[in-house]
Write a protein that binds this DNA or RNA. Structure first.
Length: 709
DNA sequence: GCGCCTCGAGTTCC
DNA sequence: CTCGAGGCGC
């Protein structure tokens, strides 16, 4: 049999061994064909032959699910960055939006915007309202009017290069007339209901499994390695946002920008309107809700944005999402099913989290079989659920109501008491760790029960490693949740602590290249893994601090610490000092924004433990740590610590803080001997007195503006 | 001391 | 995405 011919033996009549052999052979042939097609640009197979191979390969996996491993080609195509799509760093990050479900949250949002801007409670603020399309967000970069790069959202900072696939979308112009030198248009790629049905019919004709919903089909189509497949899928696009624009943005409102996109030839959503109050926004929300079923494409809510771009700039961002926009989601679809069991998972901090194992049920187009139960009290029904007191206690065997929160995360909402089996017993939450058997205790006043096993608990160790390699921390491609347990257990090349990741290649050399001979590993995947690890060896200080996994020190707090200390050595020394009980250092940390006793205690406890310190030393010895992005140093207030107090009249407190930080100053909450300036509005009290006692410079808002001008 | 806001730590499915 | 809790303003 030649490599490119396809066996006619029905896949389900093959033995497991025969199937495995054929699967492997086809995988190699397909990989080779891909290489020729993409790299050498010289295909040796016709499209039809390639498709036949591919279909046989997938049919084998369908009949023999054991073949569908992380190494499988079909997994590599829809899954995480496979190395086949290039990475694209967004010039301006693509952020996510905050959510609202109840009308009240929308009113709150509008109130928050007004308050932040210092407007009267009933002052009109122009806001746009537009349907929230349920597809994939994409950023299209045009240089000199030609489509240059198209990227998926990714983690918001770095996405995947899907330019070739985007070029197959007819609705997206390849060339723009009268566009600025650089223009990034952002919007949603989606599939209409009609086209979705057509694609699924074709999938079935070809004996392939149908897509669960239009969004999955759109995602699968956009992330095809083969643009010829994408071209068969009539994807559509709506433009609603932008990234970099140079030399200048031509309009000064959100609605004006969308109109401009329309003039440039992009599809824009016809249901976009400008409103002036929360009531008008809600009225439009209801109008769109009524039209939902007849729109012909999926939407999952309505997005509201402050229209004036100057106001958007003043409002700025909160951590990951803009303060000037919110997504008002439609109520999630609910379903009932039976709770078969309650599993306990152990997190990296030792937290025991109960997970509901459900009789599989379709909710919102996806089959759900697991759902979080949050904690011990949630199962008992202690506490409140919004306005209403929860009275359920959740028992194994119960019929439960499930929804996908924000249409994503499955959640057990309630039980149906009438359907409770007579023999159902109240759930007894374990008091020992299911992984290591150590006692699991609940601290006074805490909701979570934690395993006390610490270093002895393998579940915790594994979760800590998982945290280290995760995307928001060291982001090591090819060493994800799937592979880590395999390395953790491995007798030859174990990864038991973070430093082990970076010594892996060395140890492998010493062991005569064992990795590539391991099951599921080839020479290529071993090399890819080593390359990814090498690429992560240089880390920004904030990510390193986040990687330590200190309680209460996540992404944001790590960044605060990194900026405050600048270098690993400075941070490390401060942490050691505070662990030794140094009061000055404690005070210095306390003066940092958002850092208080709980964070300092956690930091001190971590560095007081010799095993942690040794582990960290070993890790840092393997890394090149980049100094933290220096705050601006060329402004009059750079490096100074400022405290705002009293009622500010020229700017809101948040604006004042954002402004000072932009200029490289640190904003502290309380006055200390480290404070350089106190900016006092009318009605300032004890902080002003303290500033005078300490001889700190006190100024008015006007004097502050004069200083920073 | 209370209440608001933000962050961290947990979670699912593709 | 949600919940709980820390930080901080009032």
């Amino acid at each position: 049999m030649s490599r490119s011919s396809v066996s006619a033996v029905p896949v389900d009549s093959l033995s497991a061994e025969e199937a495995r052999a054929e699967h492997e052979r086809l995988g190699e042939a397909l990989a080779e064909a891909d290489r020729q097609y993409y790299q050498d640009d010289a295909p040796t197979l016709t499209d039809a032959d390639y498709d036949a191979l591919r279909r046989r390969y997938e049919a084998l996996e369908a009949a023999h699910p054991a073949l569908r491993t992380a190494e499988s080609l079909s997994e590599r195509v829809g899954a995480a960055p496979s190395g086949k799509f290039g990475k694209v760093t967004h010039a301006v990050p693509m952020l996510s939006l905050g959510n609202a479900f109840a009308d009240e949250e929308v009113t709150d949002f509008v109130g928050r915007v007004r308050r932040f801007l210092g407007l009267e409670a009933d002052a009109p603020v122009a806001m746009t309202a537009e349907p929230k399309i349920d597809g994939l967000s994409c950023s299209l970069r045009y240089v000199d009017g030609r489509l240059a790069v198209a990227a998926t959202r990714g983690d918001g900072a770095v996405g995947e290069d899907v330019t070739a696939n985007i070029r197959t979308i007819h609705e997206i112009p390849q060339v723009l007339k009268g566009a600025p030198e650089v223009l990034e248009v952002r919007g949603e790629v989606y599939l209409s209901h009609e086209d979705f049905r057509r694609i699924n019919a074709r999938q079935e004709e070809r004996g392939l499994p149908p897509f669960a919903n239009p969004r999955n089909a759109a995602a699968g189509s956009l992330r095809q390695l083969d643009p010829r497949i994408t071209a068969e899928r009539p994807l559509r696009f709506f433009a609603y946002a932008w990234g970099e624009i140079a030399p200048a943005r031509p309009r000064d409102t959100q609605s004006g920008m969308v109109k401009w996109f329309d003039e440039l030839g992009f599809p824009t959503n016809p249901l976009t309107v400008v409103c002036e109050s929360a009531e008008e926004l809600l009225a439009h929300y209801r109008r769109i809700g009524e039209m939902r079923a007849t729109l012909g494409y999926d939407i999952d809510g309505v997005v509201y944005k402050v229209d004036d771009l100057a106001l958007q700039a003043r409002l700025g961002f909160v951590s990951r999402s803009p303060r000037w926009a919110i997504a008002h989601k439609f109520a999630a679809e609910k379903a009932t099913t039976i709770l078969d069991a309650i599993d306990i998972q152990v997190g990296r901090t030792g937290a025991l989290t109960p997970v509901a194992k459900l009789r599989p049920v379709t909710v919102g187009g996806v089959v759900v079989s697991n759902a979080t139960l949050h904690n011990e009290d949630y199962i008992k029904g202690i506490g409140t659920d919004g306005a209403r007191f929860r009275e359920h206690d959740i028992r194994v065997g119960d019929t439960v109501i499930v929804q996908r929160a924000g249409d994503v995360i499955p959640q057990v909402l309630d039980v149906v008491p009438e359907k409770r089996p007579a023999d159902a017993r109240a759930y007894a939450f374990p008091t020992t760790c299911p992984a290591c058997g150590s006692p699991a205790i609940r601290e006074e006043g805490e909701a979570v029960r934690r395993c006390t096993g610490g270093f002895a608990c393998s579940a915790q160790a594994l979760e800590r490693l998982r945290h280290v390699v995760s995307r928001r921390v060291l982001d090591i491609e090819g060493l994800g949740a799937e592979r880590l347990p395999f390395f953790y257990e491995d007798p030859d090349l174990p990864i038991r602590e973070p430093a082990d990741i970076f010594t892996l290649a060395r140890r492998d050399q010493a062991n005569l290249k064992k990795l590539k001979d391991k099951e599921g590993f080839g020479a290529l995947s071993a090399k890819n893994l080593f390359d990814a690890i090498e690429a992560s060896r240089t880390v920004p200080l904030d990510r390193l601090i986040a990687a330590l996994g200190i309680r209460h020190v996540g992404e944001t707090t790590a960044r605060v610490l990194a900026r405050a200390y600048g270098t690993w050595q400075a941070f490390h020394d401060a942490a050691v000092r505070v662990a030794e009980g140094d009061a000055d250092t404690r005070h210095e940390l306390d003066s940092l924004d958002q850092i208080g006793d709980a964070v300092i205690d956690a930091l001190a406890a971590y560095f007081a433990e010799p095993r942690n310190r040794a582990m960290v030393e070993r890790l840092v010895a393997e890394l090149t740590v980049q100094e933290a992005e220096k705050p601006k140093s060329d402004t009059p207030v750079a490096g100074k610590t400022v405290v705002f107090t009293g009622s500010l009249e020229k700017m809101t407190r948040d604006e004042a803080k954002a402004m000072a930080e932009r200029l490289g100053a640190k904003v502290a909450g309380s006055v200390s001997k480290k404070t350089d300036y106190v900016v006092a509005g009318p009605g300032a009290g004890s902080k002003l007195d303290k500033a005078r006692d300490l001889g700190v410079i006190v100024m008015t808002e006007d004097e502050w503006f004069e200083l920073v001008k």
